[in-house]
């Protein structure tokens, strides 16, 4: 019985909460997490061995004069005490200044702004495609009898276990090397989006499908479905009008997690398909130890993650009336 909880969200508190205090508490939490993320990132980066000034001037091994180093230290504030550097860094974050990229010699904000759109488009289209696939899979495996159920759940597990890079390679092989339908690298326009989107969407649909199927099965056995049947509604109406809405609730709760999966996936997918975007910038920043760019991307992603989870909590409260009233 105790084990039934595995993999499920912790039980929700059913206490009655008013909107304003709830919202303020949430916003306070968001600010706290962002501050903590910025702080963790700042101090983690200080653990890197080596002189940051050298990294700015082209990494260790480059012939740099002492004057040049001193000049860079003064320019980037690296000659100040650590605590002042930290305060300075927080102050700059507050006004949205993320510093300059070591490798690209451009402001981090510019680099992120240039790459955000591509990744956002990729992620949103993938999320929509994944939800549609998951819905179809879950509906088919819930209603199609025992064989469909086992095939459906096997497909979901396989889809969820496939790493992005391998899926990408297989899709390139099939659609571009064998069939010759699609280009192996991402070209501008919708055609170039097909393979990257499929690569991101298929594993995600596996996870979403598993969750949706479970809650659909729950819903089909629940009292409100029984009463709908007793009212004489057709089996199709029962499924599409009642069970489906029920299945959406836990899927919405997965949005924060799905966001993380999409961002991680974007790193791999954008690299393989040579698609400009935030993920590819992050990877090259990691490879070149371009610290300001890494920090900038991490903070922007954390901000977006907090936005997504706060919005889904809000959506949860709107969709599920049980969270708004005293249940017991």
């Amino acid at each position: 019985m105790a084990a039934a909880l595995i993999g499920e969200a912790p039980p929700r508190s059913r206490r009655r909460r008013r909107w304003l205090p709830w919202l303020l508490l949430r916003l306070g939490g968001v600010v706290f997490v962002l501050w903590a993320v910025a702080t963790v990132t700042f101090f983690a980066i200080r653990l890197i061995p080596g002189d940051p000034a050298e990294a700015i001037l082209g990494g260790p091994g480059s012939q740099t004069s002492a004057e040049a180093l001193a000049q860079v230290r003064a320019e980037y504030g690296l000659d100040q005490p650590l605590f002042f550097q930290y305060l300075h860094y927080l102050g700059r974050l507050l006004v949205g200044d993320l510093g300059r990229s070591y490798a690209l010699h451009d402001s981090v904000l510019n680099v992120i702004a240039q790459n955000l759109g591509g990744t956002l488009l990729l992620a949103v289209v993938s999320l929509i495609v994944a939800s549609l696939i998951a819905l179809a899979l879950a509906a088919w495996s819930t209603r199609g009898g025992r064989v469909a159920a086992s095939i459906g759940s096997l497909l979901e597990i396989v889809a969820a276990a496939v790493p992005h890079f391998w899926l990408a390679i297989s899709l390139i092989l099939l659609f571009s090397s064998v069939l010759g339908w699609l280009p192996p690298v991402s070209v501008p326009g919708p055609v170039g989006l097909v393979l990257p989107v499929l690569t991101l969407a298929l594993p995600l649909s596996g996870f979403l499908g598993q969750v949706m199927r479970e809650s659909m099965l729950d819903a089909m056995a629940s009292p409100f479905v029984l009463s709908a049947r007793a009212r004489g509604e057709s089996e199709n109406d029962v499924f599409w009008l009642h069970a489906l809405r029920h299945a959406a609730i836990p899927a919405i709760g997965l949005a924060g997690w799905a966001f993380g999966a999409l961002i991680s996936g974007a790193v791999v997918v954008e690299t393989i398909f040579a698609r400009p975007g935030l993920g590819r910038s992050l990877l090259s920043a990691v490879q070149q130890r371009d610290v300001p760019l890494v920090i900038g991307v991490v903070i922007v992603v954390a901000l977006a993650y907090m936005l997504v989870t706060t919005l889904t909590d809000l959506a949860d409260r709107l969709v599920d009336p049980r969270l708004r009233v005293d249940a017991r």
Partner: peptide
């Protein structure tokens, strides 16, 4: 729980990448 919430804000591979940048 708050600490875990902070870690959750580094979704997916992000924390792993940050760790690799450092070490």
């Amino acid at each position: 729980t708050r600490f875990l919430e902070v870690l959750f804000a580094f979704p997916g591979l992000l924390f792993a990448l940050l760790f690799i940048v450092v070490y």
